Computed example of a mutant assay.
Amino acid sequence: MHIVIMGCGRVGSTLAHTLVDLGHSVAVIDQDPEAFRRLRTAVAKHTVRGAGHDREVLLNAGIDRAAAFAAVSNGDNSNIIAARVAREAFGVRNVVARIYDPRRAEVYQRLGIPTVATVRWTADAILRRVVPGDDRLGAAPEWQDASGSLTMNELTPPERWTGRSLAELEDDFRLRVVYLVRQGRIALARSEETIAEGDVLHVVGRSRDMADLTQRLAGRHEDETGRG
């Protein structure tokens, strides 16, 4: 599979090396020729100097036969423009853009361009590991579909939920538990499973239901069973 990467910084070069190691062909675009020095010789066989939103540059990188395009330069505008050109002009199905401003990321996802908002996702993940179980943090978004209507969240259950079944939790909050992490081990969720202290749940649901869950976790009107 051929993949085009725009941006040869730390993220872009890491992506390129990993994809080549997995057996894929890769072309890397960057405006700074010095950036290509990050690449191993085997990976640097197909590099293109230029702007990633320029059609001629993209064609030189093999965008017309690419199965995926990743825009990971250090410019939000450049990334999203290049991603849209790859998707709309060349019909590349798998497109992702790295976005530094999380407010822009949410807007662009609604336009159908999957994004990774580096600062927001990293900050959320760190917060939930240094203060696990803090209800004020709510549920951490791990993934969101292009329309913004469906999300997958990481959730650390409050102590009062210990002993409740996953089925009960799913019914109460209109979500599905996909998998859980217990004592460092990952397991697919079973509806009859009960929540144990220290569990971390990964749940999928509608965005509005996730927002309701966050409010209920932060509220003070739940009884000890966790019901509203």
Rank of each mutant, 00 (worst) to 15 (best):
M1Y: 04
L59A: 11
V57I: 10
D32Q: 10
D54V: 12
T18L: 04
I195F: 07
T122Q: 12
V85W: 14
E34W: 03
G9P: 06
D135A: 12
E88Q: 05
V95L: 04
L180C: 05
E154I: 06
A187S: 13
I3L: 13
V200F: 05
R208I: 03
I186N: 15
G91T: 09
H46W: 07
L175V: 01
R38G: 06
Q109F: 00
A89G: 10
R87V: 08
R216M: 05
I5H: 03
I80V: 15
E193C: 15
F90C: 02
R227T: 10
D124P: 03
A117C: 06
I80G: 07
R37D: 07
R40K: 14
A211Q: 12
G226Y: 02
A125E: 01
L180F: 01
G52T: 10
V178G: 00
Q109K: 12
R65H: 06
V116W: 13
A42S: 00
L137M: 08
Y108P: 03
R128A: 04
G7L: 01
V11C: 08
I29L: 11
V116P: 05
A51T: 09
V178R: 01
D64E: 13
A125W: 03
R65C: 03
R129M: 10
V203L: 03
Q215G: 09
A89Q: 15
G91L: 09
V131S: 15
R84N: 14
D135K: 10
G198M: 02
T47E: 08
L19Y: 14
Q144G: 14
A218Y: 00
A117H: 12
T156L: 01
I113R: 11
E193A: 15
G138W: 01
G226I: 02
Q31Y: 09
E142A: 14
G7Y: 01
W121G: 08
I186F: 09
G138N: 03
L111K: 12
G50D: 07
E168C: 05
A86C: 11
S147W: 13
A68P: 00
R55H: 06
A86G: 10
R120P: 00
R40N: 11
S207E: 00
F90P: 01
G205W: 15
R216L: 02
G112I: 02
W161H: 04
G62D: 09
G9K: 13
N77Y: 07
D54A: 11
A211H: 13
E168M: 01
V203I: 02
G50S: 03
D54F: 00
H2T: 10
M210C: 02
D172G: 15
Y179S: 13
A146C: 15
R104E: 05
R38H: 13
I186M: 14
